[in-house]
Design a protein around this nucleic acid. Structure first.
Lengths: 130, 130
DNA sequence: CGTAAACCTGACGTTGGGTGCAGATTTAAG
DNA sequence: CTTAAATCTGCACCCAACGTCAGGTTTACG
């Protein structure tokens, strides 16, 4: 867990393949790594944190494009971020989506809980009938 | 909005293409529709509701496979559902996932809100500087 | 200095979730 | 009865998000 690592170690720690990291770099989601000598990429701790954040945002259902639109907020001085109005728009749209999703998810959980109860009682009934 | 409709009307109402409905039928997500005479599919209101439910579950991030695993709970007499133990397992796994997702989503909303506030104040500062 | 382990790149394959086409058939309307 | 609109099917294709393969280079180690 050295602070300076190659792609293999980074990939393993972040639980992705090295090809995934290449891919993220190609599409602009990971910044081009420092290339020492003739081509090997070297990463530091923030690269790892960035991959973790990407994974977390993916779990929330964001596409890689959407992630690219917001991730710099987590890793750059916000005052240096380009197109602030545009970013603000994106954030507010995302917030609206998130609120809707929270509401739907809460409803879904209710459904799951009641279905679980139903299933349990049906299974119990079946057992009694033996 | 007749109760008996063809695929075109159903597709339009549910805001999907007729090809999508064919596709859902092929993968077992929609039940084969009643086929009158020589091939045309006819649907009723529950087909529409099913499509709406599918869309809602998709918004929550479920894959079509996962949706297939739970959707019958919404449209069939639960006592007639096959493999109850298996379904119960699926439901409980889904509940765990949902709880995690709710927690993460809540955290993400907090992030969004604080980033929105930051962006707003940065934009304001830029305006003042004029 | 040799060699194995790690890394590089480009090209092609894969999976999920569909969309588009085209030719054939069917139904609805006049 | 004719004809336009709707539907049918299979096949090919699309995009996102990677994975696989293969051949070539680089670095680390004894």
């Amino acid at each position: 867990m050295s602070s300076r690592m190659q792609i293999g170690e980074l990939a393993q720690r972040a639980n992705v393949s090295h090809r995934t990291i290449h891919y993220y770099e190609r599409i602009g989601l990971m910044k081009p790594a420092e290339r020492e000598g003739a081509g090997y990429r070297y990463y530091d701790e923030t690269a790892y944190q960035r991959l973790e954040k990407i994974a977390a945002l993916k779990r929330l259902g964001l596409s890689l494009d959407e992630i690219a639109a917001v991730i710099d907020l987590y890793f750059e001085d916000a005052s240096g971020i380009k197109g602030k109005e545009k970013v603000l728009e994106i954030l507010e749209a995302q917030l609206a989506k998130t609120n809707t999703q929270l509401a739907e998810l809460t409803g879904f959980r209710r459904d799951l809980e009641s279905n679980i109860a139903r299933m349990k009682s049906l299974i119990d009934q079946a057992r009694q009938a033996d």
